[in-house]
Nucleic acid binder design. Structure first.
Lengths: 142, 142
DNA sequence: GATACCGGTGAGATTCTTTCTCATATACGA
DNA sequence: TCGTATATGAGAAAGAATCTCACCGGTATC
């Protein structure tokens, strides 16, 4: 029930917000750019402006409903916050994104920040590589 | 002798390239945006266009002379490659950047990539926080 | 039930960073 | 020194994200 999420976040339940939230929840690809969301909404017959998509996503981010990532490339991507922190590994050839967590790394990060005199607020750990999927264009046919 | 570096990188020794390289080597702040470099060149009386700064930095990056980072904020920053890989911790209040390395993290990253079926090409690990310097605007006077 | 209010929206303009275009200037081997 | 390929500078252009502002739709008020 997405409308609950919106109300909980202190946001009015409006059609664009609902549609965007639905799309984020149902999309196979968990990491979507604002443009991609906009396009899919148009294809779905919705009359939602790009400005609204950006606005809503920014509100969602502020409300903690989504996370914004800046992977390689120009546009930011958004993913639904699902309560489990994770980092990302991105295929440079096909754009595929996998998620992972590593407690050892998390602990080391905290220790490093403390040692250097920082109060850590956030972190970005992104690995870039080539994946081994058959349909990845970067893959040499074996 | 910067001109050696340029020749080694297969780049013609031109005035803009020399000046930009010198600036990167002598700057107190190791992480400079293209704009910042451009401004400092102008202040130094050089007649170098912004387009040239971007072009040269991109060439330097391709030649492995500099690294490009996308920290929080809109502009990329560039730093001279000094042969020692390191990650970054950035103060969200004052923009200060510190560098660190952690072999444990590096090893874990490799293991994770392998486990997920990726050949790792690069990685970005950036910690964001508040530093404890006296002159940091984010600091509460103690 | 009519009306005033207020946040939300869409379209386009705007900003900002970065890249591109192209005429001119420069480096460097012959 | 000359010739040619390459580099440069200025401005135009592209691309992402934000801002402006008139309009629209609920909601509250009477």
């Amino acid at each position: 029930m997405e409308s609950q999420d919106l109300k909980k976040a202190g946001l009015k339940v409006t059609l664009p917000r609902m549609k965007i939230l639905e799309l984020l929840e149902s999309s196979e690809d968990r990491h979507l750019s604002a443009e991609a969301i906009y396009r899919q909404l148009l294809e779905g017959g919705e009359e939602i402006g790009l400005a609204t998509v950006y606005r809503v996503l920014t509100q969602f981010e502020a409300a903690g409903l989504v996370n914004r990532h800046h992977f390689e490339g120009n546009q930011a991507v958004f993913e639904l916050e699902r309560g489990r922190h994770h980092d990302h590994i991105v295929c440079l050839s096909c754009g595929r994104v996998d998620e992972f967590t590593d407690n050892v790394i998390e602990e080391r990060q905290k220790a490093i920040a403390e040692r250097l005199g920082y109060t850590i607020k956030d972190h970005a750990l992104i690995l870039y590589g080539e994946c081994n999927r058959d349909d990845c264009p970067g893959r040499q046919k074996a």
